[in-house]
Computed example of a mutant assay.
Amino acid sequence: MTFLQKLGFWRKKERKETEAPPFLSKPWREINWGDNQRDLQYVKDYRPQTDGQQLRILLHGHIGAGKSSFINSVQSVLQGRMYTQALADKTFHDCFTKGYTTYNIQKDRDTFYPFVFNDIMGLAKDKGVQVDDIKLALKGHVKDNYRFNRDSRMSEDDPFYINHPTDNDKVHVLVCVIDANTVTCMHNEIEEKIRNIRKEATHLSIPQVAILTKIDETCPEIKEDLQNVYKVNYLKEKMEQFSVNVGIPMNCIFPVKNYDREIDLNSDVDSLILSALKHIINFGEDCINFHKSQQLRAMSYQNNNM
């Protein structure tokens, strides 16, 4: 072996020794793998403290990130079978979802779950949904079935504009859905739009959550075994990078795998979806209770000053 060959060999060896191992010594977040019944029952038992209150969850994110697929996956877990109410298209390279669509999830023959999902047109660099329209949706000004115009924001004289939104019209949790494979190569303009929307949600005291989809495509270790999701350092670094880029804390970011090619439910897929859903509901409930307390405080102040 020549000197240059030896030098190359030791440099390779040194590089391998200094590289971070693919697996962490222990999972950095615990999941109740195989104990889905407890989390499922938690979701089924959820009731807002106020009668008639509906928890509204608004999904937004880059085109093709998996917003519609996440809604379908949640419905599949709760229904106990594959469900495809929210239409999605993996071959569609433009905004497949064009309107503001509300999805109610049926609980039994006569009742629905007290939370709803809203799907909207995706974000894009120079097309897609207007950021101002998402801000209007956060405040409850957008009626169901409104079709977004990528060239102009919704006007107040539009028939789908709600002049006096109720508490049920307003959004209680904002969920940013991101393809895990695009986290480190997302266009600056998309990141800026996400930060802009997040800033408005913060101003309105609406909690924000991020869902990282397609995690099985990020590395072979997760594709081989979904339970490696919190053991693989590579995905943790992607989540940390996204947290830094848009400002969403790590404890509000949840990696999931949507149902896409499966024809039967999978326990590990369900575990991640239920974990994310449980926290989304908790954050939404906190939002509802906070705004109710603010309203009661304002009413009390007015009464005391009459």
Rank of each mutant, 00 (worst) to 15 (best):
T2W: 13
T2Y: 09
T2R: 15
G8C: 04
E14K: 14
K16Y: 06
P21K: 14
F23P: 05
F23K: 14
S25V: 06
G34Q: 02
Q37K: 10
P48F: 08
G52H: 04
Q53Y: 10
Q79M: 11
T84G: 03
A86H: 06
L87S: 14
D89V: 13
D89Q: 10
Y113M: 02
P114K: 08
I120T: 15
M121G: 04
D126A: 11
D126V: 02
H141G: 02
H141Q: 08
D144I: 05
N145T: 07
Y146V: 07
Y146G: 01
F148H: 07
F148I: 03
D151V: 05
D151L: 11
S152W: 01
M154R: 02
Y161D: 04
Y161I: 09
N163S: 09
N168A: 09
K170W: 04
A180M: 10
T182W: 02
T182L: 11
M186L: 08
E192T: 08
I194K: 00
R195S: 02
K199C: 15
E200T: 06
A201W: 03
T202W: 02
T213W: 06
E221R: 12
I222F: 12
K223W: 15
Q227R: 14
N228L: 07
V229A: 12
K236P: 03
M239S: 04
N251E: 09
P255Y: 11
D260I: 15
I263A: 11
I263Y: 08
I263E: 15
D264A: 12
D270W: 07
S271W: 01
A276W: 03
F283D: 01
E285H: 12
Q295V: 06
Q295P: 09
A298S: 06
N303T: 09
